[in-house]
Design a protein around this nucleic acid. Structure first.
Length: 214
DNA sequence: TGAAGGATTTGT
DNA sequence: CAAATCCTTCAC
């Protein structure tokens, strides 16, 4: 690997695989503040800070793998550390990270990321995030790794200090009461806030380092 | 073989 | 608040 490229990748140190080998409801909050990184065709890196996630597990009925194992949800039952990407409402893609263990359907839905230097809403929602990173069904079952050009990177020290809100999941009809959605309280890139939680003012809002203040 | 229903987004 | 839009699942 060329020296400059090595340095660039070092800025986005990959999360160890063992991180994903835990229940989704433990991985999901831990992913807040971490970075989603993609190496583009021209060699440059696209990255954003994860500000909102949801956990899904075979044990609860909102999970795609709750009823049975089928070709369409196969990836969710597979090895942790892979992407589970599916089409929803005929037009949108949603991207998950498979967690826990092989044979047990569970994953974390990536709902929103904050992009430095971009409008705060460009990846504020699971389908918007997928579109921004150009993730679609062709990426389903893709293993997350630097070698594959798509990976998750560790939190910066500043992101670790931020307050995380836990609340109920969005857009589901079952298990609505489970508080399995998490988001960065101070981010304006969160897709929808919990009742009573007001959006922070622009001047004080958290943003990824390198941001322009939008 | 057909109908129902989405882990969403957008515009009214 | 309803439409867009299509794949998967489930009922008949």
């Amino acid at each position: 690997m060329p020296k400059h490229e090595s340095n660039e990748v070092m800025t986005f140190k990959a999360i160890p695989h063992s991180f994903f080998c835990r229940p989704a409801e433990l991985v999901a909050p831990d992913l807040i503040g971490c970075k989603l990184v993609k190496k583009k065709a021209d060699g440059s890196l696209l990255s954003g800070v994860i500000v909102e996630t949801e956990a899904y597990s075979q044990a609860e009925p909102a999970c795609h793998g709750y009823k049975r194992r089928t070709p369409s949800n196969e990836t969710l039952f597979g090895d942790p550390g892979h992407l589970y990407v599916y089409l929803t409402y005929g037009i949108y893609h949603c991207t998950n990270v498979v967690t826990d263990r092989n044979g047990w359907a569970s994953g974390v839905l990536l709902r929103a990321v904050a992009i430095a230097g971009e409008s705060e809403r460009v990846a504020s929602g699971p389908a918007l995030l997928s579109r921004y990173f150009d993730l679609n069904c062709s990426h389903d079952s893709c293993f997350i790794s630097v070698e594959n050009g798509l990976w998750l990177a560790e939190r910066s020290a500043s992101a670790s200090m931020q307050k995380i809100v836990s609340t109920t999941r969005i857009g589901i009809s079952e298990a609505k009461e489970l508080p399995w959605r998490w988001y960065l309280q101070a981010s304006r890139s969160v897709s929808k806030r919990a009742k009573g939680d007001r959006c922070p003012p622009l001047a004080n809002s958290w943003r990824p380092i390198g941001g322009t203040g939008q």
